[in-house]
């Protein structure tokens, strides 16, 4: 039975409405309220949650479940569909020579992810260079240098240079690697100087991909922060880190809803191999606390 794999709280609601063959308006409201709570617990942005459950209510009132599907299952399917719409289908990251710039908030995992991506591309046979453009955090140069050594990537950095743009330009010139990955400092929406710095890098070197690295424990700020960064540098994709923890990633989902970019990878640990291709369905089952959600969705 499909419902066996749902989270306890959702199971609870479903149980409540099971038995009644017909789901009325009040019941839909009640279920919607519980789904709201499940989404809020997963760090989905408050306004987005309200929007989603409004859609849920409208659709549940007006649509008939397909033959063979109960009303209860259909309600779950609606919310799942709406969330999947935000995430989109699997988009594979293009395996071609390119320049990638990583941006994101303080300590979310940019430098580590730079190393993971380098290993990923090197395994696929691409020569790869890491460029150290974090001129602010003490030890950032050494961190990336050591990571580059570990994954056998080329490394470019200028230890005492404080002009990040200059380093990036020199670094891009200095290497003939097929894949060039630029690591930048952590920054947030209120730090105008740092936003300006990254915008200048982006405008000057025009990387093929600007990837937003954000961690799965992030709460309500994920959306707004993504928006500011997107306005500054046009984010082309997202990487969600620290998925080995218990953070549900609703913040990341909200960021995606805000900037409309695909998620390409997830980080699942501190080691250089701890990176996986993003799978929206897997991500959603985890977010909603459901086990095997595919069984339900494929039933249609």
């Amino acid at each position: 039975m499909v419902l066996d794999s749902l989270s306890d709280s959702l199971k609870g609601i479903i149980r409540k409405i099971s038995g009644s063959s017909y789901i009325d308006k009040d019941t839909i409201k009640e279920v919607s309220k519980e789904i709201q709570r499940a989404l809020l617990k997963a760090d989905v942005n408050v306004k987005l949650v309200l929007r989603l459950t409004k859609t849920l209510e409208d659709r549940a009132m007006n649509e008939k479940p397909p033959a063979g599907m109960t009303d209860q299952d259909y309600i779950i399917k609606i919310i799942y569909d709406e969330l999947l719409k935000i995430l989109g289908q699997n988009v594979n990251f293009e395996l071609r020579p390119q320049t990638i710039m990583l941006v994101g908030l303080y300590g979310n995992g940019k430098t580590t992810t730079a190393g993971k991506l380098a290993r990923f591309f090197i395994k696929k046979g691409f020569s790869t260079a890491l460029i150290a453009a974090d001129v602010h955090r003490p030890g950032a140069y050494e961190q990336l240098y050591q990571i580059a050594k570990e994954v056998n990537a080329q490394f470019y950095g200028e230890k005492d240079e404080k002009n990040a743009l200059k380093i990036v330009k020199n670094g891009l010139n200095a290497t003939d690697a097929k894949i060039k990955i630029i690591d930048t400092s952590g920054r947030d929406s209120l730090d105008e100087d740092l936003i300006k710095e990254v915008r200048e890098i982006k405008e000057s070197v025009k990387p093929d991909n600007v990837l937003f690295v954000l961690d799965a424990t992030m709460g309500q700020q994920a959306g707004p922060q993504a928006k500011t960064l997107n306005d500054a540098v046009s984010i082309s994709g997202v990487i969600i880190t620290k998925m080995d923890g218990t953070g549900k990633g609703g913040g990341a989902l909200s960021a995606v809803a805000e900037i409309n970019s695909p998620v390409y990878f997830i980080g699942t640990g501190e080691h250089m191999d701890d990176i996986e291709i993003f799978n929206p369905k897997k991500f959603l089952s985890r977010l909603l606390g459901m086990g095997d959600i595919d069984a339900l969705m494929e039933a249609v």
Partner: peptide, 15 residues
Amino acid sequence: FRAGAIEQISILGKN
């Protein structure tokens, strides 16, 4: 454990 961690705290300590 983390790459650059010892250097990071050493630089900070020196500063």
